[in-house]
Write a protein that binds this DNA or RNA. Structure first.
Lengths: 114, 114
DNA sequence: CTTCGTCATCGCATTTTTACGATGCATCGT
DNA sequence: ACGATGCATCGTAAAAATGCGATGACGAAG
């Protein structure tokens, strides 16, 4: 993919986060994580019809996009949590793109140029 | 990519929209569209360091993901607008995933299992 | 020390995405 | 009728993503 260095930092980051979330397995991982607060890798392997190595890859993508964080359970097991603020940042980005109150212009609307 | 039919409809749609937005050029197209309300294809070609055919492809992806809508200017030229509600839907999805007030759990936080 | 359980990473095959030029196809002005 | 203009689509090449088994790393349990 072409680098496209005309983008703002926010746009660049948004594209990265969007891409990371743009996969069914990874969306599921995130929703699962939001629901259960913290999961071991194995939990995702159980919850998804994918091989362990594949799930691990997906977790890596989410980690590198800053959506997910690895930690350790009290018992020492690895665990994944949502990166605090990552989703909120995305929401803020979207809201800002759409304007203050997310006004979207309709083809029929008075504000439209179409 | 594996079908992963365990996903809810919302998750499925979210993954599609995320994927469509997960590209620098397409993020730029959307922000440009939000800023200028309506654009002809040529406007994007001017604004991006990409060939016309490539831009057209990106617009197709955004169309098929329901993020963008084609219409016609008063003078008959084609024009693109943001699909009303598409971004808002995404915001709502994210907000819902995170919980009512987007509570995100920190590794150090009292609510964390880590 | 050895074994087992839990993950990450590697290597590879397949599929998908991305980008481009070429081509087709309307519409507009002349 | 004719040549521009503005786009979409096609065909194709290169790059990236996806998925899996095999392998390695490493602490727990025995």
């Amino acid at each position: 993919m072409k680098t496209l260095d005309i983008l703002t930092d926010a746009e660049e980051r948004a594209a990265t986060v969007f891409r990371a979330l743009g996969n069914p397995a990874r969306v599921r991982i995130v929703t699962e994580l939001a629901r259960r607060n913290a999961c071991a890798t194995g939990d995702f392997v159980d919850a998804l019809p994918l091989a362990q190595s594949t799930v691990s890859q997906h977790l890596k993508v989410l980690r590198e996009a800053g959506i997910v964080r690895v930690g350790a359970m009290p018992n020492g097991d690895t665990c994944y949590c949502l990166e605090p603020g990552a989703i909120q940042w995305l929401i803020d980005f979207c809201a800002q793109v759409c304007g203050p109150d997310c006004t979207v212009f309709d083809l029929e609307g008075a504000k439209s140029d179409c």
